Simulated assay, not measured.
Amino acid sequence: MNAYELIDLSLQRFSPKEVAQALGVDPKTVRRWQLRETEPKPYIADAIRQRLLPFGEPPSGEGQFRFIDLFAGIGGIRTAFEKQGGRCVFTSEWDPYAVKTYKANFHDGPDHVFASDITKVQENDVPDHDVLLAGFPCQPFSIAGVSKKNSLGRPHGFSDKTQGTLFFDVARIIDAKRPRAFLLENVKNLMSHDKGRTFSTIMDVLKN
């Protein structure tokens, strides 16, 4: 992307005042760049990449492969896969603060679908994709999370109906869309939780 294109992209994510502050210029200067009335100095493009687009520029075109980003957080896993040539076509994240940051980090076109509550998404409404990424909630399985829930007398693992069963929403999407590959991220204790029965259930579901 050239400097003008980077400026346009920045203005889709930030206000002219925010862009100006990040680049150390007057907002009127940003406005003149936007209108193509003046040409940005050579260093501006690098400054935009470093200060306004820390997660990188969006991949152009169709990308080498299509992927979806479930339980996306602020988009850390997405960033890595975009750098490998992938194009994100679907995102799911429910936390409002994470969503705000995610949308500031990535500017997606009209063909990209963003959903908040994955439990309300019909699997057939998810776009076709090559790779599924999911960092499903770790609290019901982590050592700290289980300890806290036990101290409060609350269920954990799959018995936690709010977070513990979200893995099965990932599984139903995999079953319906059959991506070529998937990456599921959680915590170390997942393998030993409930004496290994939790991980055994996950493997059985994925294999079937």
Rank of each mutant, 00 (worst) to 15 (best):
residue 1 M to T: 02
residue 2 N to F: 05
residue 15 S to C: 04
residue 18 E to L: 05
residue 21 Q to C: 02
residue 22 A to C: 06
residue 27 P to R: 05
residue 27 P to Y: 04
residue 31 R to I: 04
residue 34 Q to G: 00
residue 35 L to A: 14
residue 37 E to L: 09
residue 39 E to R: 15
residue 56 G to R: 07
residue 61 G to F: 13
residue 66 R to V: 00
residue 70 L to M: 01
residue 74 I to W: 00
residue 77 I to R: 11
residue 79 T to I: 04
residue 86 G to V: 01
residue 89 V to H: 02
residue 89 V to T: 07
residue 91 T to P: 04
residue 92 S to N: 07
residue 96 P to T: 09
residue 102 Y to Q: 03
residue 107 H to Q: 12
residue 108 D to W: 15
residue 109 G to D: 14
residue 112 H to F: 15
residue 119 T to Y: 11
residue 122 Q to L: 15
residue 122 Q to S: 15
residue 124 N to I: 14
residue 126 V to D: 04
residue 136 F to V: 05
residue 137 P to E: 09
residue 138 C to L: 03
residue 138 C to N: 06
residue 140 P to R: 02
residue 140 P to N: 05
residue 141 F to V: 05
residue 142 S to D: 09
residue 143 I to S: 12
residue 151 S to M: 03
residue 152 L to P: 02
residue 154 R to M: 08
residue 155 P to K: 06
residue 156 H to A: 11
residue 157 G to F: 00
residue 158 F to R: 10
residue 163 Q to S: 05
residue 163 Q to C: 03
residue 164 G to K: 03
residue 164 G to M: 01
residue 165 T to Y: 00
residue 165 T to V: 08
residue 166 L to S: 05
residue 169 D to A: 03
residue 173 I to Q: 08
residue 176 A to F: 13
residue 177 K to H: 10
residue 179 P to W: 05
residue 181 A to H: 09
residue 181 A to K: 13
residue 186 N to A: 01
residue 196 G to C: 11
residue 199 F to V: 01
residue 201 T to W: 00
residue 203 M to F: 02
residue 204 D to E: 14
residue 207 K to F: 09
residue 207 K to A: 15
